[in-house]
Design a protein around this nucleic acid. Structure first.
Lengths: 200, 200
DNA sequence: CGAATTAGACCGACCGGTCTATTCTGGTTT
DNA sequence: AAACCAGAATAGACCGGTCGGTCTAATTCG
């Protein structure tokens, strides 16, 4: 048999999650149709409902899948031993900004997008999003704590507060950049955040 | 004739805008159906398409309508002669926060919601949203400028930058509050923004 | 009267989800 | 090694409902 091409079973589920992630990142939850994902992957509907109970559950799994990839990158960035804590935070901002610019300020972050769209529509998705938001914030808190302990970040505010403030500002800046089609809000955030807020 | 009750013609259009505004604030653009608005108001479809060309145009008019009301309130708040500039900014935050808490942190702001949902989907809506965002930011810039000139706000950053930073942070905090179902991100924003960023 | 507005049946497209039938696949039995 | 079989996975026709939008006719009003 020369047919080594056949992807093993569970690959279909992962393909569904990954393609759905991409499309939902661009078009949101409501505006994404299941058939559209199925057509793109040439997967029949029977397969979809074999792997997922409903569109809502599917989206919940997409959120978890997105978090897995994002968290891994966050750990790499925010615990990079070759940089100081503040440098790591700056790297995170710089990289995200460049990514957004590469896509002409479209898409942004799936968690932010779904948060706005779905928090009032689905308690299940709101809970999932809430978990991810808290998890990410804790990673930033650790990095900021480390920055405080090496005297690189002011101690007049708690690491938790600074992390919450940082992420509010950053996600708001991304949202505004998407609408203004201009990354200037992100640059303004970077400038003020590091020069006026973080500095001891 | 005792029939003074009959609402004069154009009232139907305004009623459509206002009800559509409420429903879209809660459910977003895609998830709001025209029929649903029509049923709520007991208005036939013919009337809707008499006043509006399409759902997209309708939403654009809703955005303008929302801006009218919001801007009027913003002027009242940010130019209140009985308060100092910083007090006015604080009032804005405090009032918004209380409103959100009253609704159990649901809904948020129509401009922010539609920005996330529609910026990549409709160039028309993106442009409308962009205009409103810029307009509001300029109002905050003026207030901050005034604060700087009376020595109440630091001058080490431009009023424009501070306004952009302020609004990024605030809209991000609202978004996070909606998902976490907790207004703590907003309070954290207020605390750090005024204590660490604004202070000269 | 003529224009503005109301009225709602109707359109094709698409929605999320169901259902039955078929095919594939790995392990068991001889 | 061949035969078999149960469960996993694929396949897609089909369902009722809703979507945004059109159309014609009736009504209202200056």
């Amino acid at each position: 048999m020369v047919t080594t091409k056949s992807a093993s079973k569970q690959d279909t589920k992962i393909a569904l999650l990954e393609t759905g992630m991409d499309i939902m990142l661009e078009k949101g939850y409501t505006n994404t149709g299941i058939q559209e994902i199925l057509t793109a992957l040439r997967v029949p509907k029977g397969s979809f409902y074999h792997y997922f109970d409903s569109k809502e559950n599917y989206a919940a799994e997409i959120i978890k899948h997105y978090d897995q990839a994002y968290s891994a990158n966050l750990i790499r960035t925010l615990r990079n031993p070759k940089e100081t804590p503040v440098q790591r935070l700056r790297s995170y901002c710089q990289t995200s900004k460049e990514n957004l610019e590469m896509r002409q300020c479209s898409k942004g972050c799936l968690i932010g997008n779904l948060s706005q769209e779905m928090s009032d529509q689905s308690e299940l998705l709101r809970t999932e999003l809430s978990t991810v938001i808290t998890k990410w914030r804790d990673m930033f808190t650790s990095c900021i704590e480390e920055g405080q302990s090496v005297g690189e970040i002011r101690k007049s505010a708690s690491a938790e507060s600074l992390a919450e403030f940082f992420l509010s500002g950053w996600s708001g800046a991304v949202m505004r950049a998407k609408t203004l089609k201009n990354s200037e809000p992100m640059q303004t955030f970077i400038d003020l955040m590091f020069e006026q807020v973080m500095k001891p």
